[in-house]
């Protein structure tokens, strides 16, 4: 016969363990970001990636940059951003944004569009179209 109470206890104890593991991994990531920023004296900006089967839509929060000074490059499957930050922070640190994002699917390097508005850079990158074949429904 199944001991439900024991099973439940083990189940919740495992959930707690998983939560603690996630907390540790997250904290480690935050620490790495801050260490990198402080050691190299640049800012790793906040960003967001949305994707569908056609394209990637990447937005990056880079306030205080002149549009003309943004350097955005594609190196194979990597999107690389650099831009001087004109904001004088009280800490005196961080005078440049730097970010590299690896894209997991093949893309069309010629079909990239970008716009910069209110401190947010939005980039849409078309994915390489896969060959499609229509399936006949019987």
């Amino acid at each position: 016969m199944v001991n439900l109470s024991l099973w439940r206890k083990r189940f919740f104890s495992r959930i707690r363990e998983i939560e603690e593991e996630i907390d540790r991994a997250t904290e480690e990531l935050f620490r790495e970001i801050k260490e990198e920023e402080l050691r190299r004296n640049y800012i790793i900006p906040l960003y967001n990636i949305r994707e569908n089967e056609r394209e990637y839509i990447i937005s990056i929060d880079i306030p205080g940059v002149n549009k003309e000074d943004i350097n955005l490059e594609l190196q194979k499957d990597k999107l690389i951003l650099e831009g001087p930050c004109n904001i004088k922070l009280p800490s005196g640190r961080g005078n440049c944004y730097k970010l590299a994002i690896e894209l997991t699917e093949p893309i069309e390097p010629e079909k990239v569009r970008a716009r910069y508005k209110n401190g947010v850079l939005e980039i849409s990158i078309l994915k390489k179209a896969e060959e499609r074949r229509k399936i006949r429904i019987e």
Partner: peptide, 8 residues
């Protein structure tokens, strides 16, 4: 702009 950077 300053707030955005400071609050990241």
């Amino acid at each position: 702009e300053m707030l955005k950077v400071q609050m990241r």
